[in-house]
Amino acid sequence: MPSVAESSAEPNTERIARCHRHGPLEPCRRRLTGWGDAVRVVRGGLWLLTLVVLAWAAVRVAGVLPPWPGVAVLALTPWSVLAAAVTCVLALLARAVWGGLVAAVAMLALVAMVFPRVWGSGEERAGHQLRVMTVNLRLGEADAADVVRQVDAGRVDVLALQEYTAAAQQRLARAGLDRRLPHHVTDPEPYAAGSALYSRFPLSGERTPTGIGGFVQASATVTLPGGDRIALRSVHPCSPYTADHQSCWSRGIAAEPAATPHGVRRVLLGDFNATLDHPPLRRLIGTGYRDAADVTGSGLRPTWPDDPFPAVTLDHVLADRRLAVHAYQVRRVAGTDHRAVLATLIVT
């Protein structure tokens, strides 16, 4: 890769001679040599960044799951588009043309993977609307009154809760959740293991199975006015926050019930600890679900943490393909680092 000095039309010896006419020779030589070294270091750093974004794009396009901590980095894939764009521009400014072109190829590949999530729109169909919401309560510490306010504001029919504790159960009851959503299946547990489903409509087949990661996942079938039945689960696999937990995370997602082309339609909603860039979640969706955020063009709206960065989409509503997705919202809830996810489904 030619340096800036080499790419100039003026030979280096002539540059030194021209510099010498205005001062001693040795300081000129050191100054020009130092500038060339600095340019080489900058270009080397840009090539390193280029290789990083190229590897990122290759992993995402290939659909492979990298070992930890790559699985955590993969969650930031939407941000990698910006990283690739900045690398491309800087490389071109530094006249590292090949590096800039390679970064541009990586950026285009990442754009192809990420940006379809903003192209959808709500679907219009005739049928009964089912409004669902999911909230991770953050060890049961979320503001119960704010949760109930969100239920009222969204006219929620079914509420899925994760990290549901006994203290949270009592606060939610005092805030009036049981009066609004009188049918429920709950299993309050210490720390982050508890789970619950609350419903405006009758529930049957209530269960609270424990997932591979040790978290309870409240499950039931809701019967809607008119007799339609929808199977529901409050999903919460373990988080891949260490190398030891990556296996239980991927196996936990794989163990979630697959969608079926016939029979009772199913909705999975909750904190999946995974984004649409993680292969285990994409494989689960591929069984016959659709991600509500993706369908409505909101697939890049972050749900965790409730801070500007890093911001990723870990909370999802996965709906059977036989259900229409009419609307999708993300709302802040006081006291938790997860944002609530609301989706309006149409049962035809």
Score class of each variant (00 low, 15 high):
104 A>L: 14
156 V>T: 10
156 V>G: 02
56 W>S: 05
97 V>F: 13
42 V>K: 03
120 G>M: 07
64 V>A: 14
73 V>H: 02
57 A>C: 07
34 G>R: 09
101 L>V: 13
160 A>Q: 05
142 A>T: 02
102 V>W: 03
46 L>F: 11
41 V>E: 06
154 G>H: 06
83 A>E: 05
144 A>H: 02
67 P>I: 09
153 A>W: 09
86 V>F: 07
139 L>C: 07
44 G>D: 10
24 P>Y: 09
44 G>E: 08
121 S>F: 13
18 R>G: 09
39 V>N: 12
64 V>D: 10
118 V>Y: 04
85 A>I: 08
74 L>K: 00
98 W>N: 05
44 G>I: 08
100 G>S: 03
102 V>T: 13
91 A>C: 12
113 M>F: 01
66 P>F: 08
56 W>F: 12
53 V>Q: 05
80 S>W: 06
129 Q>S: 15
25 L>M: 11
112 A>D: 11
28 C>I: 06
126 A>M: 09
142 A>Q: 01
68 W>Y: 15
44 G>Q: 09
85 A>L: 14
147 V>D: 00
54 L>Q: 08
35 W>G: 10
152 D>K: 15
20 H>G: 01
139 L>R: 14
60 R>P: 00
104 A>C: 11
153 A>H: 10
26 E>A: 14
146 D>A: 09
141 E>W: 11
61 V>K: 05
58 A>Y: 12
62 A>D: 08
86 V>R: 01
64 V>Q: 11
105 V>E: 08
53 V>F: 03
18 R>M: 11
134 T>C: 11
29 R>K: 13
52 V>Q: 00
30 R>L: 10
151 V>K: 01
151 V>I: 14
97 V>G: 05
28 C>T: 04
72 A>H: 04
27 P>D: 06
93 L>T: 12
131 R>L: 12
145 A>G: 15
71 V>I: 15
42 V>N: 05
70 G>Y: 02
73 V>R: 01
44 G>F: 13
87 T>W: 05
